[in-house]
Nucleic acid binder design. Sequence first.
DNA 1: TTGAAAGCGTTACCAT
DNA 2: ATGGTAACGCTTTCAA
Lengths: 327, 327
Amino acid sequence: MAVSVVLNGTGGRKVTVAPEKAERIREIARELRYQPNHVARTFRSGRTAQVAVVFQNFGHFRSHSSYRGDVMNGVMDALFPEGYTLSLCPKLMDERHPDAISDGRFDGVLWCRPDLSDASATALQHARVPVVMMHAPAGTVLGVPTFCADNEGAMRRVVAHLVSLGHEKLAFVIDPVSEHSIEGQSRAEALKSAARRVGLQEPDVIVLGQDHRILSRYAEPDAPHTALVCFSDELAGFVLKSCEQFGIDVPGHVSVVGFDSSPLCETTRPRLTSVAQPVERMAFEATTHLLSLIRAAEEGKPSQSATSTLYDCVLDIRESTAPPPAH
Amino acid sequence: MAVSVVLNGTGGRKVTVAPEKAERIREIARELRYQPNHVARTFRSGRTAQVAVVFQNFGHFRSHSSYRGDVMNGVMDALFPEGYTLSLCPKLMDERHPDAISDGRFDGVLWCRPDLSDASATALQHARVPVVMMHAPAGTVLGVPTFCADNEGAMRRVVAHLVSLGHEKLAFVIDPVSEHSIEGQSRAEALKSAARRVGLQEPDVIVLGQDHRILSRYAEPDAPHTALVCFSDELAGFVLKSCEQFGIDVPGHVSVVGFDSSPLCETTRPRLTSVAQPVERMAFEATTHLLSLIRAAEEGKPSQSATSTLYDCVLDIRESTAPPPAH
DNA sequence: TTGAAAGCGTTACCAT
DNA sequence: ATGGTAACGCTTTCAA
């Protein structure tokens, strides 16, 4: 009816309403406290103006990590000025409902969860809405653009720093959960390849579960490694704590490097040297790209081939790295 | 049709379908990659299974404060197991669209934004969905339940701590934005009343904008106050920085107390004594209550009178408080 | 310029 | 047991 035209400015822009009638409509609407029903409009138009964000390791982000906050800041900065709503949906977080992606609720999905199962991968690939991934290398899922830290470059910087201090025997430390994630594999490989580049022996990969006794040997002069490069700051934090318990001096006996350069790094003793990914910027640009894909899809444009973007990481050098012990 | 019954288990539970037909339906659905349209179901049922959270001072939460993360953790812990989706909506964050609350998209709203304008207050009161507020004293908006820190109790603890150290001249420090918020007023009043209780002179209220020169006098022996109780950790952090610039020793010349006991408190020099609110628990319980209101409304139960819950705060004593300087 | 009608996908109800 | 029909609120198209 005319009401729709007057109040919501729609109506194929071919319809005009007499000014006085329009005024009367507005008045009555005010009187009745009329609110256009957003769900009905969404239903009719097929446009939800809503974007979902899916996080990895959901429970883990209760820690002091600022990761989730950084992602959300970037996402909101991209979404809100464009009028999009951000949605965190339990079904999407749960591996068991992978095709909730395409249930019509979301115009697009930002998938920050490289630990994907086969079912999720299939669902992502067949999603009826645009999807963008963070923290996954190019081509992880066919047709899905990726925004990822340059793990190779990051590990080259880590190795350069450690080598400049005199280290030769490195190890990569990872937790059993992340071990099988794409990002975990990618960082482990990147460290190995960076070490190879400078002629170092290949770093070992240490999977560190509940039992940290393996760390106890690092006080001894014949320790197998003098520097531990950790998958995350959180893990590095646990390593520091265990070292303290075992009477191992960091960085005197062994150097420790984290990943993310979160606020946690400033609170540990010693303060933690760590790789900084520009998480907020990655999230912002990934989301912006997602919006452009959404608009293209709405205008019926053919989907372009998937792009992939790598982000340079810097090494924030703090106090947990130093020359290895002299023999 | 039968399809609805078979695939979505609905259909007034009076309808039955022959097993073989049901199987055929399922098969075809699989073949077509059929996905029930969630928007249509929402439209039809009027139930969105979506709850909105509205934050205060949106821009401010880019800081190291863990506030927003704490709230979100509590909210998600309450929502996700019940299958509700969390939504952050730019319209709700924006004062100009207050009645987006009732546009049908949300089954309920958690309003963490005591800095409300008159328009928002009216919108909250007339909302067609249940609303719950955090950080606002009882009765802030008629009919809206509140979940709030016990500012009175918190300030009594702060005063007790400072008095035990020997302080007599206190001030409340607040930024110009928070000054007019309900929570700002409430904490200022709470400090005054706590001081009065123990026979201290009434604390001054210092509104601290960009210009911190007013702090320079605290190095002098006749400084008007020996302890500054700040509205937030963030503000306290700025105070610490300015003090350092002016050569004022904290806690030697003046003691500083924050509010929130966020991770920031561990990173400042000296580490910041601060009041801890159980933000995550508050958010969890507020959200749980919201869900119960939503269910009651769905079942057509009359709305109960609004409850209000106060949360005990503890004082985390760190390094920024000490006895006042001897004259 | 205005009004009437169809349809989006789902589900509840009521005839068969 | 089965399947047809109407309705949710909105927007667009078409006819008056």
